[in-house]
Computed example of a mutant assay.
Amino acid sequence: MTTTSHVLSDMAALRSELRQQGDPHCELFRLAPWRAVLDIAFDWLIVLSSVALVVWWSELFAPLAVVLIANRQRALGNILHDAGHRNLWRDRRRNDLVARLFIAPLLFASLARYRETHFKHHMELGTDGGDPDLLFFARSGPTNWFLNYLDQIFSLSAWLSSMGGHLFSRQVRAASQLYILGWWAGALALMLAIVGPDFTITFLVLWLLARATAFHLITTFREMCDHFGLLPGGVFTFTRDMVCHGVWRWLIHPRNNGYHLTHHLLPAVPYYRLPEAHRLLKGQEVFRDRGKVCSDYFTGTDPVTGAWQAQGRIP
């Protein structure tokens, strides 16, 4: 049985159980496009306000600005993820127009390439050479989770991906890369005309610095939360939900991004309905028996970092 078959089998098992209850999950597929538009505007506002804090108040706020900008880069990345699934609008033209104007190029991403690789991630989940998001175990034998985390963040290919998105990818068409560069040239020219060179240069420096540092640290940790230390073989065996609260959740998993198992099982549910979807799935026998859910990052009885030990190494 192939990995794709296992993935489809897990999704079918869940939906079969839901159908017996009258398909209560179908309401969760309903979109509220205004919600995504407001969230995009909010993220842009936080980024620009962080830059303004440094330019017009004090350079001492630069470290805080880098963290805030990195967090909103992560949040915008989650909205881009929904755009890849056409979860902003079901109408592809509207969905892709918003993504290509306000999100994808800002994150150095090609929407078409993102959609292609993310579909492979869903269908070829956990397969070596098939899953483009598959992380590696560089160590054998028991080891501290932090060492495995360090292996990931010091991966040059991972850092280049965080820093430059699709600009450094040979698999992305030159036309798409030129669009990204052209978008940035236009955005910076507009910013220069409106708020002047100090703000524009500070924005660019803080944006790139955030991508190279805090964003990379956050994204790597988030990706490890999704699948690291689990065994391939389907959605249930290789995916987690992170049901955490507090500052760590805000920093690592904005926009409900921690509900990764729920998303893989019901990918047409938009990000703002994932908590409701998770509550529904908790009532399903197949999810209770097979679903992997963590409620802590570092402490508690079953922290997610405890699953990152090398003894859980994928063969």
Rank of each mutant, 00 (worst) to 15 (best):
L156H: 00
V51S: 06
A83R: 08
F221D: 02
F287R: 08
N144W: 10
L208V: 02
H227Y: 08
F154R: 15
L190W: 07
I79C: 04
Q284F: 04
F119V: 11
I103R: 01
V286A: 12
F221V: 09
E116G: 00
D226I: 10
P270T: 08
L190Q: 04
L192I: 02
L53Q: 00
R249Q: 15
Q21D: 13
A189K: 01
A112F: 07
D133G: 09
R30V: 12
R92M: 12
A65T: 01
E116V: 00
R240Y: 09
G258A: 11
L28D: 10
Q309P: 00
H263F: 10
F199P: 01
P105N: 06
L160C: 11
C26P: 00
G84W: 01
W184D: 00
M163N: 11
P24L: 09
E59L: 14
L60R: 13
W250M: 13
H166G: 14
M224L: 12
A36F: 01
L8Y: 04
S176G: 09
N257K: 08
L156A: 15
L231P: 05
L48W: 07
L208K: 04
G186Y: 00
G229L: 12
E27K: 11
K292E: 03
H227D: 05
P142Y: 08
P142G: 01
G229W: 08
F42M: 06
S58W: 04
N144Q: 11
K282W: 02
A13N: 14
H85Q: 12
H166L: 05
Y272D: 14
R249H: 12
L106Q: 04
P254C: 13
V98K: 03
L76P: 05
C225H: 06
D39Y: 03
G196L: 03
H278W: 13
S162I: 00
W89F: 15
L160N: 09
Y272E: 15
L209G: 05
R240T: 01
